[in-house]
Design a protein around this nucleic acid. Structure first.
Length: 410
RNA sequence: GGAGGGUUGCCCGAGUGGUCAAAGGGAGCAGGCUGUAAACCUGCCGGCUAUGCCUACAGUGGUUCGAACCCACUACCCUCCA
């Protein structure tokens, strides 16, 4: 096994919380593959880059010869993870959970090594517990300790509801660690409390407490810089500020190219496999003007696209992006829509709305007024512009929306 | 069982009888500029061929010339007392 200090250095890169270094040293010295546990919520199977931060950390463990337990929280999913939310979520069906777990694992394997990953479901042990088992488990923790959790503390102080079952969630998660006899548990920083409950419960059950590491939560695409700090929501699907691991190469590349320069360095730190020293070189080069930040951004974007697709796809996406946005050429492929109309012609904004290119004709009117519409290469200035039937038009509506629109008489 | 607080546009959040399609942020969009869908600046940001009309401030009904704002009931959320 590799030098222990070197291992620890690599394993702690980018890590926020780390409990406890000495224990990790000890276990690494034992020279056996460690059991690294990470729990996942199968109700949200669409992985985005935010999830890959912890996945990458898991991969590092695998590359060093350790074993990863991919724990599907299928049972806890039906309790409802309280993290950050007070809204009660609908309980997913068995089929939804299984399907979610399958999709999740398939996507996770774009980062993880399948050969060193075992998938477990916590229904296996939680599903057969009786009520007295649950009470006994609950007896090992106190309300005061539970209320130490930031989320609970805050909600309680702000007069927001906390359901009782939410208090059981950390216990269930901790119990998973007891059953699995985890050596290490990883999670996002929002999981710190739950991970530490795991340590406590393991100790209670006469086991060596797991080592706990948390990875940062990745900011979403729209995060910006304010006073030298990155501010903005965490990456999430519901805020539509994410890059999905299953998205098309051009989408991924385009989204990544739209992040601010400040955010780019954050992404380098958390997502790139480029060595730390090299990242610092690039940062310095950009700061001094020796390197164009666009170049650094493209390099990062392509690295990520290639991870989920391949190098060829990344190159193709780059070529397309350069053509469309840097050189503002007409893309070779664009949606083709045929619209059937009555009468002599159709108002351009209305046509775009009906073709599904824009969300409403008001939206089209606005863009027209602002000079954002082009038909066959000419900017449209007439607010009443019509499209005559019997022709095909190439239309650009703003920066990104293109259509080849055929208008035919009805 | 009782008392109180709340529900505003994609999100947060002002607004307590007319000047409110509703302040301010954020997100988003367009244009300019550029190194890009960065940054920055300007504008837009419910729908409708449109200097007007329609829909909208949880729902229903009411008071009023006029209501997001007042009243009643309903639904949902939260807190406190029991």
């Amino acid at each position: 096994m590799a030098d222990i200090d070197a291992q620890i250095e690599e394993l702690t890169r980018g890590v926020v919380d780390f409990h406890v270094r000495k224990e990790l040293e000890e276990r690494l010295r034992e020279g056996r593959p460690l059991r690294v546990k990470v729990g996942f919520d199968p109700t949200r199977p669409d992985l985005h880059l935010g999830h890959t931060v912890v996945l990458s950390k898991m991969r590092q463990f695998q590359d060093l010869g350790h074993e990863v337990i991919f724990l599907v929280g299928d049972f806890t999913a039906s309790i409802g993870d309280p993290t950050g939310k007070s809204a009660t979520r609908p309980v997913p069906t068995r089929e939804e959970i299984e399907e979610g777990a399958r999709t999740y694992a398939a996507q996770a394997y774009s980062v993880l090594d399948p050969a060193k990953t075992s998938i477990r479901y916590n229904t296996e042990w939680l599903g057969s517990m009786r009520f007295d088992d649950v009470i006994r488990l609950a007896g090992r923790y106190t309300l005061a300790r539970m209320m130490e959790r930031d989320d609970f503390k805050k909600r309680y102080a702000e007069n927001r509801s906390i359901s009782l079952h939410e208090l059981l969630y950390p216990l269930a998660q901790g119990y998973d660690s007891v059953v699995l006899e985890a050596d290490v548990e990883l999670g996002g920083t929002d999981q710190l409390f739950n991970l530490l409950v795991g340590r406590e419960l393991m100790r209670e059950h006469g086991l060596r407490p797991q080592i706990v590491m948390t990875t940062p939560l990745l900011e979403g695409l729209s995060a910006r810089e304010e006073g030298g700090r990155i501010v903005g929501d965490k990456m999430s699907k519901s805020l539509d500020n994410y890059v999905g691991v299953a998205e098309a190469p051009e989408e991924q590349l385009g989204k990544l190219m739209s992040i601010s320069d400040a955010l780019m360095w954050r992404y380098y730190e958390l997502l790139s496999r480029v060595p730390v020293a090299e990242i610092e070189n690039r940062r310095a080069a950009c700061a001094s003007g020796a390197m164009n930040p666009k170049q650094a951004k493209m390099s990062l974007a392509k690295e990520i696209v290639a991870r989920f697709h391949d190098d060829a796809a990344a190159d193709a996406a780059e070529a397309k992006w350069e053509a469309q946005f840097a050189r503002r050429e007409i893309p070779e492929d664009m949606p083709e829509v045929t619209l059937t109309i009555e009468g002599e012609g159709v108002w351009l904004p209305k046509a775009l709305a009906e073709a599904g290119v824009l969300k409403s004709s008001s939206d089209g009117r606005r863009r027209l007024q602002q000079g954002g519409l082009q038909v066959d290469g000419d900017k449209v200035t007439d607010p009443k512009a019509q499209l005559a039937p019997g022709k095909t038009y190439v239309i650009k509506a703003g920066k990104r929306a293109w259509v080849r629109l055929t208008v035919q008489a009805g």
